[in-house]
């Protein structure tokens, strides 16, 4: 981003980056913790807890960490959606392209319509002239 973005836009983009990093980091850390718990590297002897309690605690911790991973995943999805929205709303070059294209389209359409209307008018005018002639020279008025 070499353009001079407003301060808040800059901050927003930075927040997107940090969100991405945080979520990925959270996924990784939680996964590592789960693996560590599964390996049982933490010495049980240090803990004052009964073994069963320890096992229960580990179970819950794993569940919470798994839920954290899921949350981080969903947060990434939200981030993707947010970035998409930001891009759509702030991508002025593409909007300008769309506007140019639209205006070109409408201009050609307008020209087409004008031409058709003109030719129609010419036809009608010619016919009207004949019809007026015919009407006013007829006896049925």
């Amino acid at each position: 981003m070499h353009r001079n973005l407003p301060q808040n836009k800059e901050a927003l983009l930075k927040s997107y980056t940090t969100r991405l990093k945080e979520d990925v980091k959270s996924m990784l850390e939680n996964f590592e913790e789960i693996i560590r718990l599964a390996k049982g590297e933490r010495g049980e002897n240090e803990s004052q807890l009964n073994r069963m309690t320890q096992i229960e605690q580990d179970t819950f911790e794993m569940q919470v960490r798994a839920a954290n991973i899921v949350r981080a995943g969903e947060s990434l999805m939200k981030l993707v959606s947010d970035i998409k929205q930001y891009l759509i709303l702030n991508d002025f070059p593409s909007v300008n392209d769309a506007i140019t294209q639209n205006s070109k389209l409408f201009r050609t359409k307008q020209q087409e319509c004008d031409q058709k209307l003109m030719s129609l008018r010419d036809d009608i005018a010619a016919d009207l002239y004949d019809l007026e002639d015919e009407y006013f020279t007829s006896i049925y008025k």
């Binding site: 096992i55 179970t59 569940q63």
Partner: peptide, 16 residues
């Protein structure tokens, strides 16, 4: 115990 705990964690992940 660990097996059960890992199973529960995996279920949470899979559900997500």
């Amino acid at each position: 115990g660990r097996k059960k705990a890992l199973g529960a964690a995996a279920a949470v992940l899979l559900a997500g």
